[in-house]
Amino acid sequence: MATLHVLSHSPFTDSRLSSCLRLLGPDDGLLLCGDATYALQPGSAQCLALELMPATISLFALDEDLAARALKTPTRVQVVDYPGFVELSCRFAKVNSWL
């Protein structure tokens, strides 16, 4: 059952992202919002880890949080707004927030 994982903590302050990457199923999705978007910082180990995920795993990021941090998005990242966030939570069978 495909799950959308939602992260909002910075990957530079705790291990939620790395724990999440280990748990991702083949059809799961990952949505970065808030400080979790810092994982897309170019050249970082976190960004490289995301780039190396299997192609079946979709990677999303919330547009306003990218804009607030002036982050450029790698090509595999799909940028979503709030209506897009709602659509994703319908598309995936479960939504798991890493609180």
């Binding site: 808030g34 939504v95 927030s97 609180l99």
Partner: peptide, 9 residues
């Protein structure tokens, strides 16, 4: 159909 949780930063 869906429970969506918000917390943390």
């Amino acid at each position: 159909d869906r429970l969506i949780c918000f917390g943390g930063p």
